[in-house]
Each structure stands twice: as structure tokens, then as C-alpha cells.
Computed example of a mutant assay.
Amino acid sequence: MLKKIWDKFMNREVISYLIFGVLTTLVNWVVYGMMVRNGIDYRIATAGAWVVSVLFAFIVNKIFVFQSYDLHFAFVIKEVVSFTACRAASGVMEMVLMVCMVSWLNMDEYVSKVLVSIVVVVVNYVFSKLFIFRKSEEKPL
């Protein structure tokens, strides 16, 4: 039974999603670090790094993870808008969960960050799989 579960969840799509997720995080950190080192305020650097990393994540998720090759302008714009909105929503969710866990439940901030990050990764995958990059023959839930 565990093998069935493992085989269902450990496939090319999930593994590539995790790999590109790590790369997206690295892009975010590198852009943030470069901006801060060049005298840009950390708040602007955070926003800039988020924009660049979301753009990077969109491109690699579209092409390599979910293999969505439709490049018609209107279709790509729809995907970009959906992707960005979902990432913004999961960002708000991340902030709310962190405040709840750290401020209200008095949990360690690093333990909370790890737990919340796991939830956010799963939510972003589900958003991408079911609503953003779904194949035209697939129906949303």
C-alpha cells in the first residue's frame, strides 16, 4: 500500500516541481541579496525578488513541470494572471499562518516556517495542477 502511495505522488511532475521550487527559492534569495548589496531598501528588494522569482517559477512550471506548450498570447496572459494571483493568495496564506503559529500559538518561528512552507508548496502545486496549467480536457474540481 505504501508503494502505491509513493508511486502515485513521486512522479516526474512532482519531482520536477520540487526541484524547480528549490531553484525558484534560490532565484529569490540571489535577487534579494543583489538588490540589498546595491543599496536598495529591503522592502523594495523583497518585492523585486518576489516578482522575479514568480516570473521564473511561471516559466519553469509552464514548460518543464506541467508541459503547457500553448504559447498563444491570450492563453499565456490568462496563465500568467492566474499564476500570479494564486501565488499572491498563497503568500497571504503564508503570512496569516505564520502570525497564527508564532504570535497566537507561541510556536518556534523556524519550526513554523518549515511547516508553513510545506503547506504553501502543496497549495501552490494544487493551484498550478488544477487551475492554472490543467490540460484542456481536464475539468476543474
Rank of each mutant, 00 (worst) to 15 (best):
I77C: 13
F133M: 04
A49Q: 05
W6Y: 15
V122E: 05
W29K: 09
V22Y: 05
S128P: 11
I132A: 06
A88V: 15
R134E: 06
F66M: 04
V111S: 07
D7S: 13
T24S: 15
K3N: 11
I59W: 11
I40N: 07
M93F: 14
S68C: 06
G91Y: 02
K135N: 14
I15E: 13
K78S: 10
F133V: 05
T46H: 12
V76Q: 12
V123W: 10
F64H: 08
M98A: 01
V65Q: 00
V96S: 00
G33P: 03
K135I: 05
F20T: 08
L130W: 11
I77Y: 08
D41K: 09
K4W: 07
V65K: 02
F66I: 01
S103P: 00
V126H: 08
Y17N: 10
G21T: 02
V99R: 03
V99H: 08
Y125L: 14
S128Y: 08
L18W: 07
C86I: 05
D70Q: 10
V14Q: 11
V14Y: 09
N28A: 14
A47P: 04
M1P: 11
V114G: 04
V51M: 09
F56Y: 13
F64Y: 09
A85L: 15
V120C: 10
L18S: 12
L26I: 15
V122Y: 01
K3V: 08
Y17V: 04
G48I: 02
E79K: 08
V120P: 13
F56G: 07
F133E: 04
G91I: 00
H72E: 12
H72M: 06
C100F: 14
E79M: 05
S128D: 03
D7R: 11
I15D: 13
S136C: 13
V51H: 02
V123Y: 13
F75E: 10
I59M: 09
A57R: 01
N38F: 14
I19L: 15
I40Q: 12
M107G: 04
K62D: 07
K139H: 14
M101H: 00
